[in-house]
Write a protein that binds this DNA or RNA. Structure first.
Lengths: 251, 251
DNA sequence: GCAGCACCTTGATCTGAATCAATTGAGAGT
DNA sequence: ACTCTCAATTGATTCAGATCAAGGTGCTGC
């Protein structure tokens, strides 16, 4: 079985060592759409051909950069990816953090070029999907097309979240609840996890100063909402945190 | 020629009065994708069947409301549409203004329900597209599928624009330049146009207080950047305005 | 060990925009 | 003309969070 030629990166694991067995990685955002849709071997085989497992990327290594030609989207299999742009004064604007199971690169479709940078915050492995091939395949697999539409549409909504004018506390609460839920959805603890990003990254994401992030953490800790030590975070009072985040997350 | 049954609204103009001639409205976001793709009559006829010209909606009339079941997207043919949500304190958060040629409803795909309200700011007419039918058709018309992906991806980027933390002046400049360009793209004047929305709408869109909008307008006028009287706006110094907007629009 | 460094915290001060408050202006209806 | 109402302006004051400034803390490498 051959793999479509992509960017020349070392492959972390072969897609299929044996001749006939197909492996879908459980974290991959498309596996459900593909397995559920009851397609025969030809389609599944074709899908495999367009998938490429890449990585690992080391901490600080870039996955793509602003202006790079777009030809593939990728699902995170492990690690955390940060996307960002630099504004004209050189300050970093973090657009998002992507955990296992989440898809990066969707905003590049319209331009044909990546509109932002993507960097690994820790050791990152990805599933890479050639977009042209995927689009062609989507034409024959309604489930896949629907999944693509859904993912794209979701991201429009997500981007609107951090657009509102909320207080530093509300933004931070929403950020922590969001992380908690996303980790929980992947089977990790919902109440205790590592912050894989720096305080500055969080600040740039929430449109706050790094000092403000520090102060909010202190306030939350003094109020018994969290326990935070360096990158290790524990949610002590999830209900109260949800309540704080409510207005941002619109529930 | 029959029109697929949609929401029971009066149709502004028949899609095709005669038996064989096809009319694409020039403002419709999909017309180019369809006409360019060199498809035969069967496909074009099918596309027509899923299009419905609806309206006019009167000022203040709602096109859809948050929570409504999603079954169609729509391209604005005339007028201005505002989309918004109410936050938990009842304050209105304006998500966008849609001018002729622009598409509303895309963020609803992922949920199957509209996540926001859409209201007419003046007299509005739309092209309505049944989304399920459109998705099915997209499977056979790669140009249409690509156009849909492009539109969705574009909106992700747009939403990120107003997310940055910019000054009131920068936000306003970016807003005015954006309006100017979008009007110009449709053949209207790039330097003089009507603000179809209230100051409060602008404020809620730019995440400012209405008073701040008023003050920015005053400042811009005193600086000779614009002339604004009631809803009538003229850009007097476009280059300087572009410069102000530069950091927001990322150029 | 300790030097170097990046990350983080804490305190003092400053500031842009929000809020509060009052007035003016324009259209719609009578 | 007149009132009613909603939109818009203008000024005074307040406040959340930025910025400035000065340590602290825990790595990594020598």
């Amino acid at each position: 079985m051959r793999v479509s030629a992509g960017t020349p990166r070392k492959r972390a694991s072969p897609i299929a060592d044996d001749g006939d067995e197909f492996h879908f990685c459980s974290t991959c955002a498309f596996s459900a759409a593909c397995l559920d849709s009851g397609y025969g071997k030809p389609e599944l085989r074709e899908l495999h051909v367009l998938v490429e497992h890449i990585g690992p990327f080391k901490e600080g290594e870039h996955i793509f950069r602003e202006g790079d030609e777009f030809n593939a989207i990728a699902a995170v299999r492990g690690g955390t990816v940060k996307t960002y742009v630099n504004d004209l004064e050189g300050r970093e604007q973090v657009q998002g953090f992507f955990l296992p199971g989440e898809v990066i690169g969707l905003s590049a479709i319209s331009q044909g070029r990546y509109p932002c940078n993507a960097v690994a915050l820790d050791s990152v492995v990805l599933c890479r999907f050639s977009f042209p091939t995927m689009a062609a395949l989507a034409a024959r697999m309604p489930g896949l097309q629907a999944q693509l539409f859904r993912l794209l549409s979701q991201d429009i909504g997500k981007a609107a979240l951090l657009a509102g004018n909320y207080s530093a506390d509300e933004r931070m609460a929403a950020f922590l609840i969001s992380l908690s839920r996303r980790y929980a959805a992947r089977g990790f603890s919902a109440t205790r996890f590592q912050l894989t990003m720096t305080r500055t990254d969080i600040a740039n994401y929430l449109r706050l100063a790094a000092e403000s992030v520090s102060r909010v953490f202190r306030r939350f800790q003094d109020d018994g909402l969290i326990r935070v030590e360096r990158r290790d975070l524990e949610l002590l009072d999830r209900p109260r945190m949800e309540e704080l985040a409510r207005s941002v997350l619109r529930e």
